[in-house]
Amino acid sequence: MKIVLVSSLTLSVLLIVYPQAILFLYSIKNVTHIPVVLNALRIFAISYVGTAITFLYTFYAQAIQKNQLSTIISFLEGLVLPISLAIILAYVFGADGIWISFAIAEALTILFIFIYSRLLNKKTNGEYTGFFINKHNDDARVFEHTIQGNVEEAINLSREVQDYLKGNKSATLVSLAIEEMIVNIININESVNAIDVIVRKNEDNILIAVKDNGIDFNPVVENAELQFDNISVLNKIAEKIDYSRVLGLNSTVITINN
């Protein structure tokens, strides 16, 4: 958020102060058009900060597996609000209203996200909080660890998880699932910088969340072309496996019943 705010604000200020610097991108040849284009650029530049925030949030919502929210934001910001506002504001302000509509559309989309996050906070009695709808976790029930992409660390991690779940009847299965998943990730990639693993104990099941920046790898689909693909073991012991590819990361959530 800090990065997109600083970069988008910098770009907005530059375009507002020096819009003529990018006139060449639009191939403006008629000198009578230059004042119109400069004015349009200055107004449109105001929307850049809002666009940066809504784009960030769109991908963030996907990353936390709230795809419906991501779709709604894209629909509001990219279609419904700018078109409806452009029609209304063009009637009131003329051509300038079209460019103003983009900035207002971004502001209203951000307002929608803010209201949504507040309502979700109330609905869940504080389970989700803040603009980024962070979920409170009971640290005693969550195991988090990051390893480098090598087999030795994968085996050590599976042992640590088994110790963490000591006394749980599914401890061995969870440990095996993690080892199979990570070893496959390592074997199908030339190198993996880091693999994040989160294990959460629930009343009825245990959730294993694995994220890595390797090549596309959906463990639900067995691939005969992969030399080391023995992921069939994982598919047999898991109750459910959800996979998505978001922001260049493989995101896999494995459910194992207690």
Rank of each mutant, 00 (worst) to 15 (best):
residue 222 E to V: 13
residue 124 T to E: 12
residue 97 G to K: 07
residue 71 T to W: 08
residue 23 L to Q: 03
residue 104 I to A: 11
residue 25 L to N: 01
residue 187 N to L: 08
residue 141 R to G: 00
residue 198 I to W: 05
residue 221 V to K: 14
residue 83 I to N: 02
residue 227 Q to N: 14
residue 103 A to W: 05
residue 210 V to E: 10
residue 160 E to Y: 03
residue 62 Q to E: 07
residue 169 K to I: 05
residue 248 G to S: 01
residue 14 L to H: 00
residue 136 H to L: 12
residue 236 K to D: 13
residue 69 L to E: 12
residue 111 L to H: 06
residue 90 A to Q: 15
residue 77 E to G: 13
residue 196 D to F: 09
residue 157 L to R: 07
residue 233 V to Q: 10
residue 139 D to A: 13
residue 228 F to P: 00
residue 13 V to M: 07
residue 12 S to N: 03
residue 8 S to Q: 06
residue 116 Y to N: 13
residue 168 N to A: 07
residue 157 L to K: 02
residue 137 N to A: 08
residue 136 H to E: 02
residue 82 P to E: 10
residue 142 V to E: 00
residue 214 G to K: 06
residue 203 E to L: 13
residue 149 G to I: 04
residue 188 I to D: 04
residue 226 L to E: 12
residue 146 T to W: 09
residue 157 L to D: 08
residue 257 N to Y: 11
residue 130 G to M: 09
residue 72 I to D: 04
residue 103 A to Y: 03
residue 62 Q to V: 00
residue 175 S to R: 08
residue 181 M to A: 12
residue 102 F to S: 07
residue 22 I to E: 01
residue 226 L to S: 06
residue 29 K to S: 14
residue 172 T to H: 14
residue 254 I to R: 03
residue 143 F to C: 01
residue 92 V to C: 09
residue 40 A to S: 14
residue 162 Q to V: 01
residue 155 I to P: 01
residue 236 K to A: 13
residue 145 H to V: 10
residue 100 I to Q: 05
residue 137 N to H: 13
residue 109 T to S: 15
residue 101 S to D: 04
residue 229 D to I: 05
residue 72 I to K: 15
residue 188 I to T: 13
residue 69 L to C: 00
residue 197 V to S: 03
residue 161 V to Q: 01
residue 49 V to T: 10
residue 221 V to H: 09
residue 206 I to V: 15
residue 42 R to A: 03
residue 203 E to A: 13
residue 178 I to F: 00
residue 108 L to W: 05
residue 249 L to G: 00
residue 38 L to Q: 11
residue 191 S to D: 12
residue 69 L to P: 00
residue 238 A to R: 05
residue 88 I to L: 15
residue 25 L to W: 12
residue 229 D to C: 03
residue 106 E to L: 05
residue 112 F to R: 14
residue 150 N to H: 14
residue 105 A to H: 05
residue 83 I to R: 01
residue 87 I to T: 12
residue 223 N to Y: 11
residue 177 A to Y: 06
residue 154 A to P: 01
residue 207 L to V: 07
residue 191 S to E: 13
residue 40 A to L: 02
residue 158 S to W: 06
residue 199 V to N: 02
residue 12 S to H: 00
residue 101 S to W: 08
residue 105 A to M: 05
residue 61 A to K: 09
residue 95 A to F: 09
residue 247 L to Y: 09
residue 28 I to A: 11
residue 251 S to Q: 12
residue 25 L to I: 10
residue 146 T to G: 06
residue 54 T to A: 09
residue 244 S to N: 12
residue 51 T to K: 04
residue 110 I to P: 01
residue 211 K to L: 10
residue 160 E to N: 15
residue 226 L to Q: 11
residue 197 V to A: 07
residue 181 M to F: 04
residue 72 I to P: 02
residue 194 A to S: 15
residue 170 S to T: 10
residue 43 I to V: 13
residue 138 D to C: 10
